Amino acid sequence: VGDQVLEIVPSNEEQIKNLLQLEAQEHLQLDFWKSPTTPGETAHVRVPFVNVQAVKVFLESQGIAYSIMIED
């Protein structure tokens, strides 16, 4: 199991704000291929294997929908 690319769908401005804060966490080494800008629009982010669980827990705790787009 390696890195994953998640497709994330924020449903409101609050969730977009939370994702932008997540993007700013440099220690997570997230690679946003497509940043969140509009509710209902997908964002794509590559998550290093060591941080996959932490990111998924965060998304679930914020009620942000996501799916695994690419499993490496």
Rank of each mutant, 00 (worst) to 15 (best):
V1S: 13
V1A: 13
V1M: 10
D3P: 06
Q4W: 15
Q4Y: 15
Q4V: 15
Q4D: 03
L6I: 07
L6T: 00
L6P: 00
L6R: 00
I8C: 05
I8M: 05
V9E: 05
P10K: 01
S11W: 10
S11K: 12
N12E: 02
E14G: 06
E14V: 06
Q15A: 05
Q15R: 01
Q15I: 02
I16W: 06
I16Y: 04
K17Q: 13
N18I: 15
L19Y: 01
L20V: 07
Q21A: 13
L22R: 02
E23D: 07
E23C: 12
E23Q: 14
Q25L: 12
E26F: 14
H27P: 05
L28I: 06
L28Y: 09
Q29E: 07
Q29A: 10
Q29K: 13
Q29H: 14
L30I: 11
L30N: 01
D31A: 12
D31L: 12
D31V: 15
F32R: 02
F32E: 01
W33E: 08
K34T: 09
S35Q: 13
T37D: 05
T37Y: 06
T37I: 07
T37V: 06
T38N: 08
P39T: 04
P39V: 11
G40Q: 04
G40V: 01
E41N: 07
E41I: 09
T42F: 06
T42D: 02
H44R: 15
V45F: 04
V45P: 01
V45C: 06
P48Q: 05
P48A: 06
V50F: 10
V50Q: 13
N51E: 05
N51C: 08
N51D: 05
V52L: 14
V52E: 03
V52G: 03
V52F: 13
V52I: 13
V52S: 05
V52N: 04
Q53E: 13
Q53G: 08
K56R: 11
K56M: 14
K56F: 08
F58C: 03
L59V: 01
L59Q: 00
L59S: 00
E60H: 08
E60Q: 08
E60I: 07
E60M: 07
S61Q: 13
Q62T: 06
G63H: 06
I64G: 00
A65V: 09
Y66G: 00
Y66W: 07
S67A: 07
S67C: 09
I68C: 04
M69D: 03
M69G: 04
I70Y: 13
I70F: 13
E71G: 10
